[in-house]
């Protein structure tokens, strides 16, 4: 509710111009490189897929670190806990799907 916001805004006071600039530059670089890989045709096949996924993960980390202020959260660290749980479930979904679908005797 709106009234409780006064206490919240004190905690909200995080991040500096420097950290935002670093974060912005990192995320831009991490966006340009994958685009360049695709447009320039630098990589092919599996190496391309792996590289793109790696840049995606790095981008994710940059966002969380510089813009979501993950490390500045106060205890209990609900955001961190839910992020870890979300990642676990994400891995289960992606890896599980690949496992199920790639070893599918009918689809082969």
């Amino acid at each position: 509710m709106a009234h409780t916001d006064s206490t919240h805004s004190v905690e909200d006071n995080h991040g500096s111009l420097k950290s935002y600039t670093i974060g912005f530059l990192c995320s831009i670089v991490l966006t340009i490189i994958p685009i360049a890989i695709i447009l320039g045709g630098w990589l092919e096949g599996t190496s391309k897929a792996v590289a793109l996924m790696m840049f995606g993960v790095l981008q994710f980390i940059v966002q969380l670190y510089f813009f979501m202020h993950l490390r500045e959260e106060k205890k209990p660290r609900y955001n961190l806990i839910s992020l870890v749980l979300g990642l676990v479930i994400l891995v289960v979904i992606v890896a599980g799907s690949m496992w199920i679908m790639l070893y599918n005797m009918v689809a082969l």
Partner: peptide, 16 residues
């Protein structure tokens, strides 16, 4: 979240 494939065992994903 770890059990979903039991709804389609017959899809044929193999024994593992």
């Amino acid at each position: 979240f770890l059990v979903w494939a039991h709804h389609f065992f017959t899809m044929g994903s193999g024994a593992d």
